[in-house]
Design a protein around this nucleic acid. Structure first.
Length: 509
RNA sequence: GCCGCGUUCGUCUAAGGGCUAGGACACCACCCUUUCACGGUGGUGAUACGGGUUCGAAUCCCGUACGCGGUACCA
């Protein structure tokens, strides 16, 4: 029987989740759901020094906002708990020791100073960063060179040491990447990576392999930056569990900024978010703005991210999460990095604001209004207003400028556009119009417009010349939805009131 | 330096040997609209370079250039 698909995302809690990270989650999620499998979230918190409080919680919140809930995680443990590597610490050592027993790894007692000295000594123009590799290891303090008794003694005395993989010489390690196809490496040019650190924590290399095995991961997606260390992982699988049990790999292309790899700096420099949500770094006190706070809908964010490095071959590009699950295919993920374009991201948001019912984001718009001092009391009215203006909003914050005048009469009316053409006939028309609307029984945009035109003609004025003044009276400037739609929503009382009070403004010299 | 990955309009991309290289964002023009948008129509604009293979190459092969990643007791 085919094994159920299990994919995992393993972030390190060291900061906010940038675009590339969320996209990796997304592709993981899409692939898992598409195959009826599980999406597992594991936390790679093996480096205590880089751990940032709150970062794990932030990751959960981001995934929840995007709608990418894991099936198993530290929050919702499944059969393979725990999901934090710090809580799994004990199990890594035995695998590292096993590798030493089998001759695939060795103890290294070199101190940091000794490593520095080695790199200093060996550094040349041709070799700017010397590695701890098969040529260097013969000169270092490790169990390959030291006498067995000496190694025993050092171990018994609890001398700080690491366990390094012993990279074989002249072998070719190859594997098939789901996106890139066959990839080969010559083991002679790969160094002896540390597997178990002096503090007993595994490095990423040991941890992914052990955890993926223990958690029965079948497919592993990660960023392209991991490609160079893939041979280490393949070898570890071969030595420990058998390559046939190794998950299938997919190395995702990078997301680039305007110049090179997308960074937090790009966000600040070019004025766009690079994190899904606001990230407040407790260590530096620095705040990095998020897409959510900028006024992006999660649907738009996810949609935009999905299209950054994948395309289903059709010309469609607006997809819901459900549609993405249906259409996604890992083979169609691109090999080359994609440059993030904020303009296109805004376009996606505009599309989603237009096609979502306003109920999907009314709550957020309400808080924007509250910040500006407008408290919404009439839900039905609020909904109708949002529905009327949503097609002209790109960001949620845009709702304010496109609709605030529905909730408060304009204070200052910009009469400059009509002042020169203003005359007593027009004033008389509006006086009459304000009066007659009070008796309109069928209050809607169409009947209002009909009445307006009929009275304009009766007064001998072209209706077109009266529309702009009417707009200014209702909203205060040259903006907003069609005038009669505005009046229809405002109601006859408010419309009449605004016309009358604006008339005084128009009369002023 | 070494190793790996990549390269189609400004950007995201389609086309996996065969019609004038298609679409989207952005930009420009026109239409619609007596506000601003939405929308509609059209336009500018690309196969990095050089060699092969082939009747035929964006597509396959080789080389060059450029970009990116890795080269930590970080992930």
């Amino acid at each position: 029987m085919e094994k159920k698909v299990r994919v995992r995302f393993a972030p390190s809690p060291t900061g906010g989740l940038h675009l590339g990270g969320v996209r990796t989650v997304l592709y993981n999620y899409l692939f898992a759901k598409q195959h009826g499998g599980d999406f597992i979230l594991r936390i790679e918190d093996t480096d205590q020094t880089r751990f940032v409080p709150g970062a794990e919680e932030y990751i959960f919140e981001t995934l929840a906002w995007c709608g990418l809930e894991p099936d198993e995680s530290p929050k919702h443990p499944g059969p393979h708990a725990p999901y934090r590597q710090s809580e799994r610490k004990q199990q890594y050592r035995q695998y590292a020791e096993e590798l030493v027993q089998k001759g695939y790894a060795y103890y290294a007692f070199d101190t940091g100073e000794e490593l520095d000295a080695m790199r200093q000594r060996l550094r040349t123009d041709e070799n700017p960063s010397p590695q701890y590799d098969r040529t260097v290891r013969t000169q270092m303090r490790n169990s390959l060179n030291l006498a067995a008794e000496e190694v025993q003694r050092l171990l018994q005395e609890n001398t700080p040491h690491v366990i390094r993989i012993k990279m074989p010489e002249g072998e070719t390690v190859s594997f098939t990447d789901m996106i890139r196809g066959d990839i080969q490496f010559d083991t002679s040019v790969v160094d002896d990576k540390v597997l178990l650190k002096a503090d007993g924590m595994p490095t990423y290399h040991l941890a992914v392999v052990v955890d993926d095995y223990l958690m029965e991961i079948t497919h592993a997606f990660r960023g392209e930056e991991w490609l160079p260390s893939a041979p280490v992982h393949v070898l570890l699988w071969r030595y420990l569990f058998g390559e046939d049990k190794m998950p299938q790999w997919a190395h995702l292309p990078l997301i680039l900024g305007p110049s090179g790899k997308l960074s937090k700096r790009d966000g600040a420099k070019y004025g766009f978010p690079v994190f899904a949500m606001n990230w407040h770094d407790p260590k530096t006190g620095e705040l990095t703005e998020g897409f959510r706070e900028r006024g992006f809908l999660p649907e738009a964010f996810v949609n935009m991210l999905a299209m950054l490095g994948w395309n289903d071959g059709t010309e469609d590009e607006v997809f819901s999460l459900e549609e993405l699950i249906r259409r996604f295919s890992i083979e169609k993920v691109h090999k080359g990095g994609a440059r993030f374009d904020y303009e296109k991201a805004k376009w996606f948001n505009h599309e989603w604001i237009k096609r979502q019912p306003v109920s999907a984001y009314a709550q957020q718009v309400r808080s924007i209004f509250a910040e500006k001092g407008i408290v919404i009391s009439d839900e039905g009215y609020f909904t109708q207003v949002l529905e009327l203006v949503k097609e002209r909003c790109t960001m949620l914050a845009d709702f304010w400028e496109h609709s605030y005048f529905f909730f408060k009469a304009p204070k200052d009316i910009d009469t400059s556009a009509v002042k020169s053409k203003w005359n007593d006939d027009k004033a008389a028309f509006f006086k009459g119009f304000a009066k007659s609307i009070m008796s309109v029984s069928n209050w809607n945009a169409a009947s209002l417009e009909a009445l307006f035109k009929q009275q304009a003609e009766a007064a001998g004025i072209k209706p077109g010349e009266l529309q702009l003044p009417m707009r200014l009276m209702l909203v205060g400037g040259k903006f907003g939805p069609p005038v009669f739609d505005i009046a229809a929503l405002l109601g006859k009382e408010e419309t009449g009131y605004r016309i009358n009070s604006a008339l005084e403004e128009f009369e002023r010299p």
